[in-house]
Simulated scan of single mutants.
Amino acid sequence: MLRSYLRLVLFTTGLLFGVQVPGFISDYSKRVEAHLIEAQQAIKGFNATAQQFFKGDVQALIQHYRSSEDPVFRQDANNIENLLTRTHALERQWLGLQGPWYARAWHVATKADPDIRRETYNGYTWQVLLAPDVIAWGIVCALLLALLIETLFVALAWVIHGGRRKPQIDRDWR
């Protein structure tokens, strides 16, 4: 009986952790989008200047700043390049989050920006959303956790008992 309750607790724990995955991915996506909008806003003026004087080539604007005699302009060339690099990195992050659910999950797990992922984790509040994909995540994670732990205990018992099965007691029920 206790074993059944422990299985239920294990399954419920897996379920509650599993339903957090879509919420975390959603929060991460929103943070990436907010950072991207901010970066695009910061580079907007330089893009306009590049459009006006360099046919839209921001790299030409950066080269122009670098070739200037003024040290302030030379330093600004590095700042503009940093803004441009950050904007491109955020655009790649945003594009990685536009695919199907499994691609988004894989992207957040393997290719997420570490700073934004940490920021998302630190600001994340646990939530239980009742949407079909969230419920599916919860059930799958619960089943996988339960299967993993159950397999671990069965394997451990098998090793402890030397690979032998418990002898079956023949009972005569007359």
Rank of each mutant, 00 (worst) to 15 (best):
P22L: 00
P22V: 00
G23E: 06
F24N: 10
F24K: 08
D27T: 04
D27H: 05
R31D: 14
R31V: 03
V32L: 05
V32A: 05
E33R: 05
E33W: 01
E33C: 04
E33N: 15
H35A: 11
H35R: 14
L36T: 01
L36I: 00
L36S: 03
I37T: 14
I37Y: 13
I37R: 11
E38H: 12
A39S: 15
A39L: 04
A39C: 07
Q40Y: 03
Q41T: 11
A42I: 01
A42P: 03
K44W: 05
K44N: 14
G45I: 00
F46Y: 12
F46N: 15
T49V: 07
A50E: 06
A50H: 04
A50D: 08
Q51S: 15
Q52N: 13
F53D: 15
F54W: 06
K55P: 09
D57I: 03
V58T: 10
A60H: 13
A60M: 11
L61F: 06
L61V: 08
I62K: 08
I62Y: 08
I62M: 09
I62S: 10
Q63G: 09
Q63W: 04
Y65I: 01
S68D: 12
S68I: 00
E69M: 04
D70Y: 01
P71T: 02
P71I: 00
P71G: 10
V72S: 14
R74M: 10
R74H: 12
Q75E: 14
D76A: 08
N79V: 00
I80D: 08
I80G: 07
I80W: 02
I80S: 07
E81H: 06
L83Q: 13
L83P: 13
L84T: 08
T85P: 07
T85G: 09
T87H: 05
T87W: 00
H88Q: 10
A89V: 01
A89R: 02
L90S: 03
E91Y: 06
E91R: 03
R92M: 07
Q93N: 11
L95M: 09
G96K: 02
G96D: 06
L97F: 07
Q98K: 14
G99R: 07
P100R: 11
P100H: 10
W101V: 10
W101T: 10
W101G: 07
W101Y: 13
A103S: 14
A103P: 06
R104C: 11
R104I: 08
A105G: 13
V108Q: 05
A109G: 14
A109F: 12
K111W: 07
P114D: 11
P114K: 06
P114F: 01
I116V: 12
I116F: 10
R117N: 12
R118A: 15
R118L: 13
T120Q: 07
T120S: 12
Y121N: 14
Y121P: 07
Y121G: 14
Y121M: 11
